[in-house]
Design a protein around this nucleic acid. Structure first.
Lengths: 336, 336
DNA sequence: CTGAAAGCGCTTACAG
DNA sequence: CTGAAAGCGCTTACAG
């Protein structure tokens, strides 16, 4: 297994009898080289299994060609609670890789306010993808004010102009509630994510809208909020059950909370979906795997990830800021 | 928000009235600079929020200071089935970051045999962390033969010398089985991962050992194999139930399969743990979240991730190959 | 302990 | 369409 002898474009240049410049252009598919030369050089590169040196290229171009995925890290270590992030990671990585970008995962310490500088000023990354997190608003502010390229999953910050991709939360809330109404449910509870989040307020709007359409009105006893995570689904639904023991349905803002809610409801002696119907949100892979498969509002995670990747790269390259919302759909299984 | 004016070590050098060399040394904590100078320079760097440029540093040092996490990608997109990988990712990333390494995630296409070259020869990464995957043996061969620095989760390949960290599978199998025996179970089934895997064979050894200790012997009707994933737990346990309708316990090689197995067993009209006890493996976060919390063999994921990170970095730096096994423990919840 | 200088392997004006 | 040369921002022998 001989040490590879062709390691730099200079080696290729020698082999092809051209200059380094031409090799560089050929390997970058520049239209500045004659097609025939380009193909000849590319063939040689392929033959010798040659790869451009990334650090050299990045230094020269003053771009890292890599993007950071900033993880929220509710806790010290990852768990199912981070499943949404994991699932979307897959499609982000795929799209990024075929755009020629690498995918760095950055686990930020919530107290650390310096991470963005650390990765940007060092030339390690060209931009950031920000997922949901309790600190999201603060992070957006930091990034926006330092003029860092970034994109977020969720509603854009009202005060700053930046890229985002978000689900259609109003429709999501409406779809879930309409279905519950059509199924004959009379006392439909709303179990939201954090009240202060725009996304949650929009899902609530959808809920309210659907209710209003059939002449109903929101009952404050039927409202509770959690933090999207499993444990909060349990406690929040217990609160609901106490405030309104006769509820017969609950629209939950995440699958994780829905799974928690289901077990708490079952423990209270009620049957699902007979006594109370539960609709989740997201359609993570566990929604279908759950012992009681979840009826839920499906986010289009593959599309969302793809857009997160390509719109960030587009922003890095051209500076155009996009705010897109991806459609949701209701998938009916057994919990409602 | 003025554009930053100090961007390179040259700027710092000017500010500190020293040479670039000295700045470089000071910022790298070299003992070659007088402590006082070093501290003065570091203070200036801090004041101006200066970061060394990573591509330049990497080019100069001919090291990327980044490690690739190679994901198995059973499917196109991530799901709960990749939860083990996700959970371990957290601790790997943490340890890597405090060793000064970055964490790239590489989603390899199973058919692609070229990914390793692509990342190594381009100087994008210094080494690889390989998790479980159907192609693991082949990937090890590829990496070993190209002399790439890497570490795997699992048993090392017999033919090649390389780093690894693995769980104590024999003890894991023994612990689970002994507990089931102590609980008075008479017909204990073994639901393994892929038969051809060393890890699975070792868990089987532990199972056999525990049985032998109380004078029992392995009944072939009580054996089945899956692929660690949820769906295979369902089908495999159905097979078992057919071969041995009177089984009263099953030791399952993953939590994911265990969850599938539980629902299939319940659907067959049997109660858990009363009629049949189920012990899982791994103790992923879902084990505790499951509607029927899992009794399971806990892998020490935080420790495993930490070792995976630091032993790979150690190998990169010094060439010493380590093969370590981390302990397991039984955690008793409600499924057995 | 410090500095001047070469070198890491690319890209890209500039000139032809 | 092609090449010579400068430059990207570091590190590190080498000399002092």
């Amino acid at each position: 297994m001989a040490k590879k002898s062709v390691k730099t474009i200079e080696d290729i240049a020698r082999l092809a009898n051209v200059s380094k410049s031409t090799v560089s252009r050929a390997l970058n598919d520049s239209s500045l080289v004659k097609q025939e030369t380009r193909e000849r050089i590319q063939a040689i590169a392929r033959e010798y299994n040659f790869r451009l040196n990334a650090p050299a290229r990045n230094l020269s171009m003053r771009q890292s060609h890599t993007v950071a995925f900033v993880t929220h890290a509710y806790h010290q270590s990852f768990s199912v609670d981070d499943l949404f992030g994991l699932e979307i990671m897959g499609s982000i990585a795929a799209r990024l890789s075929n755009l020629g970008y690498d995918f760095l995962v950055v686990h930020v310490n919530p107290k650390d306010t310096d991470w963005a500088n650390q990765y940007l000023d060092s030339g390690k990354v060209d931009g950031f993808i920000l997922m949901t997190s309790s600190r999201k608003q603060m992070h957006i502010k930091t990034l926006a004010e330092m003029n860092a390229p970034f994109i977020i999953w969720g509603m854009p910050h009202p005060k700053y102009s930046h890229c985002s991709v978000t689900g259609d939360n109003i429709t999501g809330g409406r779809l879930a509630t309409e279905y519950l109404i059509r199924s004959g449910r009379q006392r439909i509870a709303f179990l939201g994510g954090p009240v202060e989040e725009m996304e949650v307020q929009q899902r609530f709007q959808g809920y309210e809208l659907a209710l209003a359409t059939v002449g109903r009105t929101v009952n404050p006893d039927l409202l509770a909020y959690g933090n999207y995570l499993h444990a909060s689904g349990i406690t929040a639904v217990q609160r609901l059950l106490q405030q309104a023991p006769d509820l017969d349905a609950v629209f939950v803002n995440s699958d994780l909370m829905a799974i928690g809610a289901i077990s708490a409801i079952q423990n209270s002696g009620r049957r699902i979906p007979d006594d109370v119907a539960v609709v989740g949100y997201d359609d993570l892979s566990i929604a279908a795997f759950n012992s009681l498969p979840l009826t839920t509002v499906r986010q289009n995670i593959p599309l969302a990830g793809k857009l997160l990747a390509q719109n960030l790269v587009q922003f890095i390259r051209t500076g155009v800021v996009t705010n897109v919302t991806v459609p949701v759909e209701l998938v009916i299984r057994e919990s409602a």
